[in-house]
Write a protein that binds this DNA or RNA. Structure first.
Length: 195
DNA sequence: ATTTTCAAT
């Protein structure tokens, strides 16, 4: 077929994967949904060909070298033909917040790509690695916007990245409590000058 | 009750 095909439909995440990673289950893996928008005048226009998701390479993918989801994204990014003269908004919806080991590479990425502003919405704060608080503050200081996913972001992911099969997004029972708790924790970290 | 923490027991 030589004619121009319609743009290929974006790969979508199945409902179980979403619920296991972005809702009330603490999965031993990390998923990262990402979207890109470009500034055109006063508006932000979606760059839909770069909306997708990925996951880390970890214990359950032993055929791949271990790599956190954020670094998998950094591997991917250079292949995008973005216009250095334009401004971009890169938004992540990530199931665990970035760990302190990944932060220096993210900071470097932001320094090298001043045409890109990074907005991170995490489902939960990843507290497992020592120094996680400092890592998040360093990321913030490098210009990244950090927040916890609220109902709005969950709904947006559901509508944008999921194969929802026509089902509406169903908040889980303690969703609001979890959001409040995680948001409070993040705010405490970001406000603490000791970090 | 200090938790299923980009696992490892």
């Amino acid at each position: 077929m030589a004619d121009n095909p319609a743009p290929r439909a974006r790969r979508l995440m199945d409902i179980n994967t979403f619920e296991e990673n972005f809702c009330d289950v603490r999965a031993n893996k990390t998923y990262l949904c990402y979207k890109v928008e470009v500034r055109e005048g006063d508006a932000w226009t979606p760059v839909l060909e770069h909306w997708d998701y990925l996951r880390n390479q970890g214990a359950d993918t032993p055929w791949l070298p271990r790599r956190h989801a954020e670094l998998c994204f950094l591997d991917l990014f250079p292949s995008w033909p973005l216009d250095q003269e334009k401004q971009y908004r890169l938004t992540w919806y990530i199931s665990w917040s970035p760990c302190p080991d990944c932060v220096p590479e993210l900071v470097e990425f932001l320094k090298k790509n001043s045409h890109v502003k990074l907005y991170i919405f995490a489902a939960r704060v990843y507290t497992y690695f020592l120094g996680y608080e400092r890592g998040l503050c360093d990321l913030r200081d490098a210009g990244a916007q950090l927040a916890i996913m609220t109902h709005n972001e969950h709904q947006h992911c559901w509508d944008t990245f999921m194969d929802s099969q026509g089902q509406p997004f169903e908040p889980w029972p303690n969703m609001e409590e979890q959001i409040q708790e995680q948001s409070q924790q993040l705010q405490t970290i970001l406000r603490n000058p000791e970090n």
